[in-house]
Design a protein around this nucleic acid. Structure first.
Lengths: 233, 233
DNA sequence: GCAAAAGTGTTAGAACTACACCCATGC
DNA sequence: GCATGGGTGTAGTTCTAACACTTTTGC
């Protein structure tokens, strides 16, 4: 009935929606495209799948090309396959989204790609269906951050509770009550107070916390599905 | 930097995880593969992407080939792209999952494909990475059914509350309290009692309800995010 | 009349929301 | 000493979970 050799073959691309947080706002890393079509326009970082790499590997490679970092949160979002989404040639694009600490990337590489960070609320026009990809990624991030502790991926190893709250406020574009927020994140029992204080931002200084990954997975293994309670809703 | 013409091209396949509910158990529709490799083994229904169709269209075509039905719940799940997932030739497979009323499909077509329904808790060995796809689909269904009213897709147009409860119980493989379940689904205000009674199953008979799609989307439009409250958790 | 499934309320505990003041420090 | 951001507790309300009996009807 079906024969492999008779079938059409396709270009397969990977596009990365790269989220970052600068302490104030949720941001997106975009590049200025340096090849046709759409040369010079803003675009997600992308690249083509190669014969001997898996999708996840390829997405990691592409992300690494731009940021110089490895081992970061990177998750498949959705495959986009409208017939004319790329006018040059039919291309199936598999979108991934990444969460990075905005200060951990290689500034040189970013400069080479003429990339820069944009506020999520003030994006330039994007090529092809990249706008749609960004919207889907934001939706996913909002959902994910409400149910699993991924927020930490966007912060440095040690962070303060006011920082964490600002992050959530910018993800959901809303204000949260300080006391309720603290009570909630602390009640999960996966944040540890390092007793160090960060003093550059405020006069009083705020305690630095770490996310206790081991404790979190231990709780998950124990079937404790209430470790992380929705922050929104 | 990147040139379309130098890039590798790939086979792109679509595989459908087809869920059904027979009133007792959650089921999966599988086919006996009639071509090499793995001829004669159990497999998800699949097919190759063609040049002039989008991913969603192709998935719908493939589903229609097996069941004869259109316009049903069909959603992209995940793209699977391990290098050796198909030993015959490198293939990127984009998995979709479908929810259908188990009695609405074309029995002839199903017979032609030597397809049959299996209990989700008693599946045969599947080819390639199809096992993994099924697990991902089940996880997604559980998540989705807890947050959005998709359960109805697996039932006839009119259904009774005991049926609906059985469905949820089989999706989550657990028992639910009858009174709490009813209170909850009715409190969403998206089920309407048709006042008809279904009398074939029990002596007393149970009222048939319909899902009020208009009312649901009206509530969503009004920003009422509490229309559908998680059934589990 | 009895077996089998449908239908119905209440209560205690937990979680959620809203809200206002003191603390520590740098200038 | 004052301005700035960090930190803390309570009370009313809502939501959740646990629980048992009556109703209808076919046989």
């Amino acid at each position: 009935m079906q024969h492999y050799q008779d079938q059409d073959h396709f270009l397969v691309a990977l596009d990365c929606i790269i989220f970052g947080f600068d302490g104030e706002e949720l941001k997106l890393l975009l590049i200025k495209r340096d090849f046709e079509p759409e040369r010079g326009n803003w675009s997600l970082m992308g690249g083509f799948l190669q014969k001997k790499e898996s999708l996840d590997t390829a997405a990691g490679r592409i992300l690494n090309n731009l940021t110089g970092i490895k081992d970061i949160f990177l998750e498949q979002l959705h495959a986009f396959g409208e017939v004319n989404r790329d006018p040059e040639e039919r291309t199936i694009s598999i979108a991934y989204y990444a969460l990075i600490d905005v200060n951990s990337h290689d500034k040189e590489l970013v400069k080479q790609h003429s990339a820069s960070w944009f506020s999520i609320h003030d994006l330039p026009e994007l090529i092809f269906d990249h706008q749609q990809m960004v919207e889907a990624a934001l939706k996913r991030l909002r959902h994910k951050a409400a149910h699993e502790p991924v927020g930490f991926e966007l912060l440095p190893d040690k962070f303060t509770l006011p920082q964490l709250q600002k992050l959530y406020e910018s993800i959901y574009n809303t204000d949260l009550d300080k006391r309720n927020f603290r009570r909630r994140v602390l009640s999960m029992g996966v944040l540890v107070n390092t007793k160090e204080k960060q003093k550059n931002y405020s006069k009083k200084g705020a305690f630095l916390y770490k996310f206790d990954e081991d404790e979190y997975s231990k709780k998950l293994d124990n079937g404790d599905s209430t470790v992380f309670k929705p922050i929104k809703n």
